[in-house]
Amino acid sequence: MRIVGGSHRGRPIIAPSDRTTRPTIDRVRESLFNMLLHSPSLMTDEGKSRLEGGVVLDPFAGSGALSFEALSRGAHHAYLFEIDPAARRVILQNARELDMAERITLRGADCTKPGPAPFTSPGPADLVLMDPPYRSGLGTQALTALDREGWLKPDALVMVETDAKGSFAIPPGFILLEERQQGPARLTFLLHQR
């Protein structure tokens, strides 16, 4: 795997060696970030990408690929949740190799039970990049819990990746902006409305 765009374009990243982690493939990541940077429907009311200086939340981090891609493309900070110790070691190794260790906060907590959000800098997330295990239902649980605990800004943008035939149960407090199929994945974009 590699970073596909931004200041760290082409830099390699590693993934956990187990078969339970399914990193977002490079082609899907590239399409996703092009949408985040150029699609008017996914911009802020001021016409700005949420990546520009934004805070990213990566609830099912795995290798951290989505967060590192966001940081490479202009995000200020990323919160990563990962319960697997081996995956956390991979994330920290990737962060060191990419000189991004100061720009991430890695939590070993279950994102469906995240605890209260920190209210100090960098604050709640502008953008959630969620790639839960396919067909698990965990994405809806996690988003509900993260909302309840204050992890999201009132107008945060949420991207949920599911398999192409899958769907995402949208919890209260979010509206559907759009859905796009990208190869083997479906990307669902939601707007937080609190």
Rank of each mutant, 00 (worst) to 15 (best):
P116V: 06
Y134E: 11
W151E: 01
R11I: 10
A142T: 00
M159Q: 13
R103Y: 09
Y79D: 04
E161S: 13
G166F: 03
H38S: 13
L57M: 07
L129P: 03
E149I: 00
P116H: 04
P12Q: 13
S121M: 09
A145M: 01
A95N: 01
R96G: 05
T188I: 15
R186Y: 11
M159I: 03
P23A: 05
M35Y: 15
Q181T: 15
I3N: 09
G6S: 10
T21K: 06
G54F: 02
A78Y: 05
H76P: 01
R186F: 11
R148Q: 14
E149S: 03
A75G: 04
T140G: 12
P59T: 06
D18M: 06
D126R: 06
S72L: 01
G10P: 15
M35A: 14
P133F: 07
H192M: 03
S63A: 14
W151Q: 05
R180Y: 12
S17W: 04
V4W: 08
S63P: 03
A95D: 07
L143P: 08
R88V: 08
G53F: 08
V55T: 12
S72Y: 01
G115M: 07
S31R: 11
L71N: 03
L146V: 01
Q141V: 03
F33Q: 07
T20A: 14
E179N: 09
F81L: 07
R107T: 13
V160H: 10
S167C: 07
A86K: 13
D99C: 10
I91T: 09
L51Y: 07
L177T: 12
G166H: 11
K165L: 14
L71E: 06
I3H: 02
A164N: 12
R88Y: 03
L106F: 08
G47P: 03
S49V: 10
Q181V: 15
T140F: 09
T112Y: 01
V28N: 03
A142F: 06
L92H: 12
E102Q: 13
R9D: 06
I14M: 11
P171L: 09
P184L: 14
L177P: 04
R186L: 14
G173K: 08
T188C: 07
R107N: 01
R88T: 10
D147I: 02
Q141R: 15
R96S: 12
H38F: 14
D131F: 04
T44S: 15
G74P: 05
A169Q: 13
V55A: 04
A101F: 07
K48A: 15
R29H: 11
V128P: 03
D131L: 02
L32H: 05
R96F: 08
I3S: 05
D84P: 06
G54R: 02
R9E: 14
R88W: 02
D131H: 04
R22F: 00
G150M: 05
P23V: 03
G5K: 04
S136A: 12
H8Y: 14
V4E: 10
D18T: 14
T140S: 15
H192W: 13
A101R: 10
R27I: 07
E52H: 13
G5W: 01
L98Y: 08
S121F: 11
V158S: 05
G173Y: 00
L71T: 04
N34P: 01
L177S: 04
